[in-house]
Design a protein around this nucleic acid. Structure first.
Length: 189
DNA sequence: AGCGGGATTTTCT
DNA sequence: GAAAATCCCGCTT
């Protein structure tokens, strides 16, 4: 039985595609929510687009902790995004969770989003809102509730698409965005 | 379907 | 002061 930390203690660009198909389980107000990850992006310290590129700051310190912790940040002054820390302690690498498909607790997620239908989890800030992820979970260990990562078998290589990342202006040449081919919950094909 | 503006924290210039 | 790992709404085609 492989541990979460062992699974994640590898380069972000290797871990990112392998997180596709894995499950996030959230427990909130006695409700159990479960989603399946369908879209991710890798970031590391050698990467101009990464928050860790210029070294530690107050905001990004969790990126430099050990693999398996959650890095939550506020973007554009109002939206939360969440990342799984990867690699060795002090490395400054993480994988952004961009989109997921609902498995359990659909109604509760719709309530948290104040929306129903397709736009529930198809973007990093939407996903955080639907799972009630905010700064209080920054640094949380994903081996434990109330937010747990459950590793699944890697999906087929031929079912993974690899593209430029979304919403960045630097390091556009890196193909570090991964998503499941033909999955309707992906933010953008 | 596609654009443009607004909300508003952290970081860097 | 401006840009950023975004989303939503309202307007125009």
């Amino acid at each position: 039985m492989i541990t979460i930390k062992h699974f994640l203690n590898r380069p972000a660009e290797i871990v990112a595609p392998q997180l596709l198909g894995c499950i996030l389980e959230r427990e909130i107000d006695g409700n159990k929510l479960r989603v399946r990850i369908v879209e991710t992006e890798a970031y590391d310290q050698s990467d101009e687009a990464s928050h860790s590129y210029k070294g530690r700051t107050n905001r990004n310190e969790v990126m430099f902790t050990e693999a398996g912790h959650l890095y939550v940040y506020l973007t554009y002054g109002m939206h939360y995004c969440c990342n799984v820390v990867t690699g060795d302690e002090g490395e400054g690498a993480a994988v952004l969770i961009r989109a997921a498909e609902p498995i359990l607790g659909l109604e509760h997620m719709e309530m948290l989003r104040s929306k129903r239908g397709k736009d529930l989890l198809n973007g990093p800030a939407k996903l955080c809102q639907a799972l009630a992820i905010d700064k209080s979970l920054n640094g949380h260990n994903l081996a434990d509730l109330p937010l747990r990562l459950i590793i699944q078998e890697p999906i087929k290589f031929s079912m993974v698409n690899k593209t430029e990342r979304i919403g960045i202006s630097r390091a556009k040449g890196k193909l570090w965005r991964f998503y499941i081919v033909d999955n309707k919950y992906v933010s953008k094909s």
